[in-house]
Design a binder for these strands. Structure first.
Lengths: 138, 138
DNA sequence: TCCTACGATGGACCAAGTCCAAGTCAATAC
DNA sequence: GTATTGACTTGGACTTGGTCCATCGTAGGA
């Protein structure tokens, strides 16, 4: 945890109370929170924190590569603190639960040159969908 | 084109001028339009059509499996009329251009049982990202 | 301890999408 | 051809998720 804060400081981040709280919230939870959920948890520790600051800080963490944005559907983006281990997502189509998964193989290699249309392809994002055990039984 | 309209009628769709126009707009274009773009094109042919109707109709086409929704990022959803041929998407991270692509291999098979957490996994959606030729040179 | 540029604030604003009460009309029945 | 009716459409208000900006506050260097 203080690893994250250290890394940020080393990159010249000005360490404010607000940024610390946002970083700690993300780092502490291993689920994928929405910006509003981050705000709610941050507010517990630092009641005056503003929505704009949470958005700013999340945006900065994303561009620093410390967290990744997951746009699961048309709803709110979720923020995934587990950015250093490449992984994909498995989402329950019914209740929206998300799990990190690690498929075998290299999906980038599965896209032949003839299907790249001159693009410089740099990443691939896979979303598996299905029913989680709970929703499957119900 | 009238294939689509026939299929819809056979499923008990009440064929109104509005629905016909929306279906024709989607069927005519082989790009991936946003709801607003569909509305704009529909308005050319049928000026009184309302936004709510376009959203309703798109939603119905999606649940009938005739078009698929593509939530590329936090922006507006796009509607993909090419729902009958399975395919994935390649998106330019800079300008947002989308192309349909057909990767080799079966991504569902790449997810081992140990990574399924009891889910009944039914589909996978892959999004390749990179720079299109135009944005790469600029 | 003082300065100052970087960061935080909150309230207005925006875009995408949903909801709803009232009006309209496609398809069936006669 | 006309009547009937329930499904469809309308448009405007509303909601959600997010951005912008002028102003104020403060972290961290000198």
């Amino acid at each position: 945890m203080s690893d994250l804060l250290d890394r940020l400081r080393q990159r010249g981040w000005r360490m404010t109370a607000q940024r610390r709280v946002v970083a700690e919230v993300l780092d502490g939870e291993h689920v994928h929170l929405t910006a509003d959920e981050v705000l709610a948890r941050a507010t517990v520790r630092l009641p005056e924190i503003s929505r704009a600051t949470v958005y700013n800080t999340l945006g900065e963490l994303v561009s620093l590569g410390e967290v990744t944005e997951v746009a699961t559907d048309g709803r709110a983006k979720r923020y995934d603190p587990n950015a250093h281990r490449p992984h994909q997502h498995l989402i329950c189509s019914h209740c929206g639960a998300i799990r990190d998964v690690h498929p075998a193989g290299d999906p980038l290699a599965d896209l032949p040159d003839s299907e790249r249309f001159g693009f410089t392809v740099s990443e691939v994002e896979m979303t598996y969908r299905g029913l989680c055990p709970d929703c499957n039984h119900a």
